[in-house]
């Protein structure tokens, strides 16, 4: 059982873009679980997301120009660090993640003395069954690509659910768009951060599937990753 005092050290960062349908539910779920420090970054949504989050008991941030999910997460992380966060969780705004999984991650990060816990939907049989076949193929392909770029082989390299300590959050730099998921892994390797994969449940609803990554986007991400790697040379 994680104490309330301990949970108060945790800041949950949510990047939201056109999430007016789901954001209130996600925030209330986190509050019910005892997480009161929530930072929601509206990435210049076209719908009413920003006006909605301003009424919620969260720190509501707003990008006046759309900059992408990675940029929003980094904005939220920087703000949480300014507020003195000891731990930072990245959490999806579409309701795919379950707040009670944060408890498990918190327990593991303190017990195993690691810097970052990475959520994985491929560690428990019951979670694997939830993943649609098309997603499974796409995600497994991405783990290989991420391995080639970072040298770290994970079971699930594109899971948006993570818990990191202050040190990790300070060091990690992210790309603006969806390539940020891979950036987390390359940054872990670059800064020699200690990591562990933790099983998490991902809820696939029609809504979240509609918002998820397509094959086309996956190739766009790959292209950007290759170009950025070339720039580093």
């Amino acid at each position: 059982m994680i104490s309330k005092q301990y949970k108060d050290k945790v800041f949950v960062v949510i990047a939201a873009y056109n999430e007016e349908k789901s954001i209130s539910k996600v925030v209330s779920g986190l509050k019910k679980q005892g997480y009161s420090n929530i930072v929601v970054v509206d990435d210049c949504s076209k719908d009413k997301t920003f006006s909605l989050i301003q009424k919620l008991p969260v720190y509501a941030l707003h990008h006046p120009i759309n900059r992408g999910q990675g940029a929003s997460l980094k904005t939220g992380m920087d703000y949480a660090l300014r507020l003195g966060a000891e731990y930072i969780v990245t959490f999806d705004a579409d309701g795919q993640h379950i707040p009670c999984d944060i408890d498990a991650m918190l327990e593991i990060i303190s017990r195993k003395k690691v810097d970052i816990c990475l959520g994985s939907r491929f560690l428990r049989k019951i979670d694997i069954k939830n993943v649609p076949i098309s997603k499974r193929i796409l995600l497994k392909g991405s783990t290989i690509v991420v391995f080639l770029f970072s040298g770290i082989l994970l079971s699930d390299a594109h899971n948006g659910f993570r818990l990191m300590n202050r040190k990790a959050a300070k060091n990690i730099e992210l790309g603006d768009r969806f390539e940020h998921a891979s950036d987390f892994i390359t940054e872990i390797n670059k800064h020699k951060l200690r990591y562990v994969e933790v099983p998490v449940t991902i809820l696939y609803t029609d809504y979240s599937m509609q918002k998820g990554q397509s094959i086309f986007n996956a190739f766009k991400i790959l292209f950007r990753m290759i170009i950025r790697k070339l720039l580093e040379l």
């Binding site: 707003h62 990008h63 006046p64 120009i65 900059r67 940029a71 904005t75 920087d78 703000y79 300014r82």
Partner: peptide
């Protein structure tokens, strides 16, 4: 944009 968002 990040500076503006955090400042606000």
């Amino acid at each position: 944009i990040r500076e503006i968002a955090i400042d606000e």
